[in-house]
């Protein structure tokens, strides 16, 4: 998994300097974040992967993002549980709304009637725009100034020249 993640990171760095526009990369990153933040749900995963493939966005960025966010998504479960409990259980006024959604076609597959699932869905939805704008801005900044500066760094050049990067990669694989 970690090796896969490193490969995706390598690809992602390539993506940063690729011909894809910053909004394309930002959209895929936000979609990946949505998938990574929510607990395993087959239906949701199918939708997002399909969107990544269908939309003209960077698939690698989306998968990297999903992997990164899934690493710490469980840390958000207590907060998500509180949010979900507040909306599903405590807010009795919303009961009819949830009942309507529950009886709608397809939507029950999202398992939103679970407190953790609903909480993470809301958190992931709220995080979409900030992630989009942050990633978009970050790519622009990286491409305009950071990329060249980084390439000029002696350490990067040394690593490239000595092949330490490959050695670190092998060592990492060995300990895995």
């Amino acid at each position: 998994m970690s090796v896969l993640l490193l490969k995706f990171l390598k690809k992602f760095i390539k993506v940063l300097i690729s011909s894809d526009s910053p909004p394309q990369i930002a959209v895929s990153f936000a979609l990946g974040a949505f998938m990574g933040l929510t607990p395993d749900n087959f239906f949701l995963s199918i939708i997002i992967v399909s969107l990544l493939f269908i939309l003209n966005v960077n698939v690698s960025a989306g998968l990297v993002s999903a992997g990164l966010f899934s690493l710490f998504s469980s840390r958000l479960f207590p907060l998500a549980h509180k949010i979900g409990s507040f909306l599903l259980i405590e807010q009795t006024g919303l009961f009819s709304f949830w009942t309507t959604l529950y009886n709608a076609p397809i939507l029950p597959f999202l398992e939103f009637n679970n407190t953790v699932m609903l909480g993470t869905l809301i958190l992931a939805l709220l995080a979409q725009l900030p992630i989009y704008f942050l990633v978009k801005k970050g790519i622009i900044v990286y491409r305009e100034s950071l990329h060249e500066k980084l390439q000029k760094l002696k350490i990067i050049q040394t690593i490239k020249a000595s092949g330490i990067g490959q050695w670190v990669h092998k060592g990492w694989r060995f300990f895995q």
Binding site: G84, Y102, N113, N114, T115, V116, G119
Partner: peptide
């Protein structure tokens, strides 16, 4: 449980 959450059942027509 905080890990699994609470699954609430809503009435069906």
């Amino acid at each position: 449980s905080i890990e699994t959450g609470i699954t609430v059942s809503f009435p069906r027509p």
